[in-house]
Each structure stands twice: as structure tokens, then as C-alpha cells.
Nucleic acid binder design. Structure first.
Length: 289
DNA sequence: ACCTAAACCTGGGCGC
DNA sequence: TGCGCCCAGGTTTAGG
């Protein structure tokens, strides 16, 4: 499910509620989700949580880290003493925990628990040496990331200059390029759709043919829609929930994504839905040239 | 380089 | 109520 804003929302929750907990043991219910030696995490304390594009890294105090990618339907849900009172886990999205979709349970000290749920089982969790994280493909093959989140010091950031460079000489369609993690880190289908709408650019345009003004407009639009996604704590159109099990709100603010049955919010015209880059693609032919 | 389809899975929505 | 079909925010791989 998640793109940069959703994964960042998860990361913030892990940082707030998981850090400081010691991992007592781990219950692996679906072994294919997990890679590496899970024994290494036992007895270690959680130091921090990082995000690289759409991937998460939970750092432990013993030289190991837990890397994870939630793909389409993965969820990390925290329960324990740090959990604020009065916040209910969305029954619609996760049900009672553990559920039949809970594939890994991290049992923490002080009675805490971190559940990994994943309906479609596409996600993965890997135990790796912290010193090897930067050498892993999900980090070293990741393109520069739009500077919209707070934990990005020392990272390769997508400046306007880099964005211009990424687009130059590329004959691929602009929407497919926006979603290519090796070129730009963190943007997926929803935010690519919305950024192109906000910038007034047709998703079928060839990247290298965008004018300088269009490149600048699109760059600003990418940052803007990601910031809105963060502000609304992600899009819970389907299965996304935060670390506390709360739904995000960005789905109530989609600009064009999912709007094929409602009129264009700008001109009132009919929104088109096409297949592009292997994904459903929404755009207004009047407003996006 | 670039594009497409298929694969990994399950569930929800829709038409009939 | 039920069945079949299509769709779903991601990524990888194979093949054209």
C-alpha cells in the first residue's frame, strides 16, 4: 500500500512507541515473510527507526537491524505500555490482534507487542547487520528522495536540479518515471497521479519533452502532494493504518486518484482512467496537457 | 532503453 | 445468496 507518506507515518510511530523496548522473543507464524537470523534480535533494545524510500529499518543496540518493506498490505501495529489511552485499533482494517493475517509477533519487555500483519503476504522482514544496511539494494539502488520528511539528514535528496537531471533525455512516460524507485525514491501510484494533476501535466508525456516551467511545476507538485499525504497521516483507501492502528485521511483529499466516477475538481469535466506503467492512472484530459 | 505481462497473495466490490 | 470477474497504494523477473 504505502508510499513515502504512509511509510513515514509508520516510522514516526515506531520511533515514538517502540524505541526503548527490548525484544524478548519473536513468534514467526509465516516463515516466508522473514529472512536472516531472527535469533540475533532477541534480547536487543530498539534504538531508532529509519526510512529509505518505502522501506523501514528498525535499529537495535546490538549491531543488528530489522529491515522491512510492507509492500501493498503490510501493517506494523504496536500495543503495550507506551500506547496512548483512548485510541482504538480500526476493526475494519486489522480486527482483533493477533488475527489470521498476523504473520510475525515481536514480544517486547513490559508486556509490549509489535504485530506484523499482511493480508497479501507481499511484504518482507530481514534481519541484517546495521553496518550492512547502506549496502543493501533497497538503499543503494534508491533514487534521491523528495525532501519532505524530517529524518533525512545526510541523505540523497531530490533537489530541483536533480529532478531536472533525472528527467533529461528520458524517453519514458513521466508518470512511470515518477514511480521508478531507482530514479526517484518514495513516490508511488497515488501521489504520482495527484502530482501530475496538480502540475497540470498529462501522465503520458515523455519526460524529456517537459518544458523548464513544467519541470519546476511538477517538482513543486510532487513535494506538495507528499506533504499533504504526511499532514493527513497517509491514505487509508484500502489497508493502510498507522503503528497505533489508526486510519489516515489523505483518501478524503485525493485530487484525481480514484476520481473516474466524479467530475474533475478543477474544470468539472470527465476524468479519464487509463492503464499506464502497469497501474490504474487517472487524469483530466482538459486540465492536463 | 523502454514497454508489457506475469508473478507473488487475499479480499472487496460489482454485475448477473 | 452466490459465483465469476476485476480491482487494489509494490516490486521483481522475463521477454519483446
Amino acid at each position: 500500500m504505502p508510499e513515502l507518506p504512509e511509510v513515514e507515518t509508520i516510522r514516526l510511530g515506531l520511533e515514538k512507541y517502540l524505541v526503548g523496548h527490548k525484544i524478548v522473543n519473536v513468534e514467526v507464524r509465516l516463515p516466508k515473510i522473514l529472512q536472516g537470523d531472527i535469533e540475533k534480535v532477541k534480547g536487543a533494545r530498539v534504538k531508532g527507526a529509519r526510512r529509505f524510500g518505502k522501506a523501514l529499518v528498525i535499529d537495535l543496540d546490538n549491531g543488528y537491524s530489522i529491515a522491512a518493506h510492507v509492500k501493498m498490505t503490510g501493517q506494523f501495529i504496536y500495543d503495550g505500555p507506551n500506547r496512548p489511552q483512548g485510541i482504538g485499533i480500526s476493526r475494519k482494517l486489522v480486527g482483533t490482534l493477533p488475527s489470521k493475517f498476523t504473520h510475525v509477533i515481536f514480544n517486547l519487555d513490559k508486556g509490549g507487542k509489535l504485530y506484523y500483519n499482511d493480508i497479501r503476504q507481499f511484504g518482507w522482514i530481514k534481519v541484517v547487520s546495521t553496518s550492512n544496511v547502506e549496502r543493501m539494494s533497497f538503499v543503494n539502488e534508491l533514487g534521491p528522495e523528495p525532501p519532505v520528511a524530517i529524518d533525512m539528514e545526510g541523505r540523497s535528496l531530490l533537489t530541483l536540479e536533480k529532478f531536472r537531471e533525472v528527467l533529461s533525455n528520458k524517453k519514458t512516460k513521466i508518470k512511470a518515471l515518477l514511480m521508478d524507485q531507482k530514479r526517484i525514491g518514495g513516490v508511488g501510484n497515488i501521489y504520482a497521479n495527484d502530482a501530475l494533476f496538480l502540475a497540470g501535466i498529462n501522465p503520458n508525456r515523455v519526460a524529456k519533452d517537459l518544458s523548464e516551467a513544467e519541470v519546476e511545476r511538477l517538482y513543486e507538485a510532487v513535494l506538495e502532494v507528499l506533504k499533504r499525504g504526511l499532514k493527513y497521516k497517509g491514505a487509508s483507501e484500502t489497508n493502510f493504518v498507522s503503528t497505533l492502528g489508526e486510519e489516515g485521511e489523505y483518501q478524503k483529499h485525493f485530487l484525481i486518484y480514484g476520481h473516474e466516477k466524479s467530475p474533475c475538481p478543477k474544470c468539472g469535466g470527465k476524468v479519464s482512467k487509463v492503464w499506464l506503467g502497469g497501474r490504474g492512472t487517472y487524469f483530466c484530459p482538459q486540465c492536463q496537457k
